[in-house]
Design a protein around this nucleic acid. Structure first.
Ligand code: ZN
Length: 486
DNA sequence: CGTTTTTGACCTGCGC
DNA sequence: GCGCAGGTCAAAAACG
């Protein structure tokens, strides 16, 4: 698919200046205790680190430097002063012979003079530059906003088209297979037929049915293109997205409705693994597995598989999109196919641009799996504060931020969510208050992990389906009262 | 009473 | 072929 990576850039343009001290800062830090960085004083270092890393930010360097220069001028005037002092000292050394008196007065006098003269003009110049930079920044924000709107519209159109295509293909496949059932004896599997009739294109229920019947159908049709598509679909169905998050709850809420259909004791883990299937539509092939980590039972691993065959509420689309995107990317060969767990910068930065240090890919597993690890945040408060505050301080809504990183791979609804949210969402000030309340909560880490996980699949989308699960998610980040309940 | 969860049985793929 | 492990089914129980 023609993924608009620009979508990422738009958002980055918009957010980066503020959210820069984010996940990138913690790249490679798996343990939390020693790597906790002091919140305020390290901000600039973190920002610098970020800019040093991904080339995707290079093109914004100027803007961002300007942005932070604003702060630098505000805060460490002494730094500038020192620099000037140093340079003047050097000059003095060179010219020194004729200025004994002055040198006798030492550089401190000079510095006083410098302070009296240059700062005024410098201040003016600085303010001018600052104003210019701000104007430029605002202009770009506006431009960014426009581009986002355009992108948003494109994404919506794309989603609609995709839905149409899926529906058409499934109807077509159903028709072909039914004909075969009547004529040449495709396996009539009643349940599968029923499922297909109820709109299951990628019905995971009937995997064997899919294989046998569809292959037969394909033989009869003898269309290479479809064959390729079928195999791709199979790969996509098997591709998985795994989310690790700390949560007390037995499952994370992700905007979908699930029914538990099995539970097994997995080898090497005392905690049972639970199997759920999506029940938002009859025959939806999407499944998920939920299991606690053996080492740390506060960590909940949720693995998603398959694509929904029905319209999703915005709340649930991010995760679905992520799964699908991961599958597409795995399928496209953008990742190694033979070795084990790898760190794919490409996929990470593309799929989870703000969480690059938290994603990993396993190609050696029975199924290619993309793992989003939300448990490795060294300083959840710091991380959360930045992640939560900055986006909407930059005029973006929270869901937009959480949704967007998952959506740049063409389909997706983070932007939709943001749009849907604006009319009814809480004002930014309220969000800021919420964040304050959140960050003050002692149980915040768990809530955070759960919330992020949930928001990944959810976010406040307007809940057209009245999904009960969403309520928890919303409470975790949208409650004006700052209540955090999970 | 309809829906969801529980749980033992069953199926499938894989390694030996 | 056998055993193991992962995954699914489906009847019974629990729930609202
Ligand atoms: Zn579904």
């Amino acid at each position: 698919m023609a993924t608009p990576p620009t979508g990422l850039f738009f958002e980055s343009d918009h957010i980066t200046p503020s959210i820069s001290p984010l996940p990138m800062v913690f790249t490679g830090h798996n343990t939390s205790s020693s790597s906790l960085s002091p919140p305020s004083t390290t901000t600039h270092f973190e920002a610098t680190t970020l800019y040093d890393q991904p080339d995707t930010f290079d093109h914004k360097l100027i803007k961002e430097v300007d942005f932070f220069n604003d702060k630098k001028h505000d805060l460490p005037i002494s730094d500038n002063y020192d620099l000037h002092k140093d340079s003047t000292v050097d000059l003095d050394i060179n010219i020194n012979t004729g200025l004994h008196l002055l040198t006798g007065n030492t550089s401190s006098d000079q510095s006083v003079i410098d302070d009296g003269v240059s700062p005024n003009s410098e201040d003016k110049q600085t303010k001018h530059e600052l104003a210019t930079a701000k104007a430029e920044f605002e202009r770009m924000c506006g431009e960014n906003q426009q581009l986002k709107e355009v992108l948003n519209k494109m994404i919506i159109d794309y989603n609609i088209l995709e839905m149409h295509i899926a529906t058409m293909m499934q109807q077509k496949g159903e028709r072909n297979c039914k004909e075969d059932v009547n004529g040449k004896g495709c396996m009539p599997a009643p349940r599968s037929v029923m499922d297909l009739g109820l709109a299951a294109e990628n019905d995971e229920h009937s995997r064997s049915f899919d294989k046998d019947q569809r292959l037969n159908c394909l033989k009869n049709d003898n269309r290479d293109v479809e064959e390729i598509e079928q195999s791709n679909e199979a790969t996509i169905r098997r591709a998985r997205v795994s989310v690790r998050a700390r949560s007390e709850a037995s499952v994370i809420t992700d905007g979908c409705q699930w029914r538990k259909y099995g539970q097994k004791m997995a080898k090497g883990n005392p905690c049972p693994r639970a199997y759920y299937r999506c029940t938002m539509a009859v025959g939806c092939p999407v499944r998920k597995q939920v299991q606690r980590c053996a080492e740390d039972k506060t960590i909940l691993t949720t693995t998603y598989e398959g694509n929904h065959n029905h319209p999703l509420p915005p709340a649930a689309m991010a995760m679905a999109s992520t799964t699908s995107s991961a599958a597409q990317m795995l399928l496209s060969g953008s990742m190694p196919s033979s070795d084990g767990v790898t760190n794919s910068n490409y996929l990470s930065t593309t799929l989870f641009p703000y969480s690059s240090n938290m994603t990993s890919i396993s190609a050696s597993a029975p199924f290619p799996t993309v793992t989003l690890d939300l448990t490795q945040t060294p300083n959840p408060l710091h991380f959360q504060r930045d992640q939560l505050q900055l986006p909407f301080l930059n005029s973006s809504s929270l869901p937009q931020f959480f949704g967007q990183p998952l959506n740049n791979q063409s389909k997706f609804s983070g932007l939709q969510m943001s749009q849907n949210i604006h009319p009814q969402g809480p004002p930014h000030a309220a969000l800021a208050d919420t964040v304050t309340a959140l960050t003050a909560d002692p149980n915040f880490t768990a809530a955070l992990a759960t919330a992020i996980s949930s928001i990944m699949g959810g976010g406040n989308g307007g809940g057209s389906t009245g999904n009960v699960n969403n309520e928890n998610v919303n409470a975790a980040y949208c409650d004006n009262n700052g209540n955090v309940s999970n």
